[in-house]
Design a binder for these strands. Sequence first.
DNA 1: GCGGATATTATTCAAGCGTATAATAAGCCC
DNA 2: GGGCTTATTATACGCTTGAATAATATCCGC
Lengths: 213, 213
Amino acid sequence: MNRRTYHRASEAERREDLILATLDCIAEFGIQGATVRQIATRAGVTGGLIRHYFSGKDQMLQAAYRKVMTGMTETAIAAAIEGETAKARLRRFIVANVTPPVTDPRTLSLWAAFISHIQIDPSFAAVHRENYFAFLEALETLLTAFFAEQNREVSPKECRAHAVALNALVDGLWLEGTLAADMFAEKELAENALISVEALLRLQPGELSADER
Amino acid sequence: MNRRTYHRASEAERREDLILATLDCIAEFGIQGATVRQIATRAGVTGGLIRHYFSGKDQMLQAAYRKVMTGMTETAIAAAIEGETAKARLRRFIVANVTPPVTDPRTLSLWAAFISHIQIDPSFAAVHRENYFAFLEALETLLTAFFAEQNREVSPKECRAHAVALNALVDGLWLEGTLAADMFAEKELAENALISVEALLRLQPGELSADER
DNA sequence: GCGGATATTATTCAAGCGTATAATAAGCCC
DNA sequence: GGGCTTATTATACGCTTGAATAATATCCGC
């Protein structure tokens, strides 16, 4: 007859906990295994609470998707701004995307689970689109600054095409490197990424990849 | 009291039907919506039959995963062998991977749904690995032949690195082009792919992308 | 065309699902 | 520290799930 004792948390805190628990469950059991009860258990609460913070399970999943994507993009952007020159910033951005914590099997599982829902639920498509544009724009900005720094004239159209190709390469290496992590040493993947990027931009070999710090 | 009339199909035929129905359901309703009953309905049979051909739902999903992946790889390989020179074969292989029917939202949904299960179920990881190797090896073979044709000496190690980068680029463009199909004209994506590949291989601009048939 | 083998249907089962509602413990204000 | 608000628990509900079983329609060899 005795109820569980509990702590009344702040709204922000509780929502965060629920979202993190959602991601844990999806990563561990798949989107099928991420049930309301499982998530609640993981968050240390009871199932009913979810409906107090979200209008339903679907809306919570969507919030979780946002969290994953902004996490990935922000990690790479944060790494980039540490660089002192445009070249260094570009370089750091690329490397961050093929290096932990971005290359993480768990993150990839989550990403894929959400991607597979894009065609089914339009609200997931919107989240994807937001983040794709943010990533592409970040890349384009880095590129434009880099070309300017090199006194190299590149039309906006070319710049966009380069951004699309770089985005593809980075995404692809991220996939490969995370799914077949045992095949690549951590440095190897980053090295390949830099060499490939300098080739894509028609730079001199070593211009990005040479081990300058 | 009257039972449905039905047709006794051959094992191969029935398994095929069930697998196709499984893919339909995953694409349409997500992996959550791909229930035994839904799949059976789609295949025009009743639920119980699934257990007659597969030891369980999971094994059927795995068979469906195999089907999707071999389909994608084989389409690209089939396109490649039509080429007369090594260069043409490489070119056709690349283009096929960023062109319908490979760039198809449905295929991407399926692919992503399965990818998200790799970390959960080791048997899915095995399927992924098989196909990743097959794709990488196909690419490596095409590349080796191409370099030989060009009388260009490239060490096996370099060749492998190039294959990894090309694989990444192709996968990434496939993702981008399929998820944001409205942003790219069909030719535009293939054009970008070819220009990027020739850059990655340090070829002369236009060496692959110039509109030779 | 008949009989036997079996592919397929029909039905049942227990478990788990997302959601709704009512009871209650927690913590802040005065 | 007593009362009010409400975050949280507890419980119940109606459905759906994957799987197991029994009944039966189909078709092949003869």
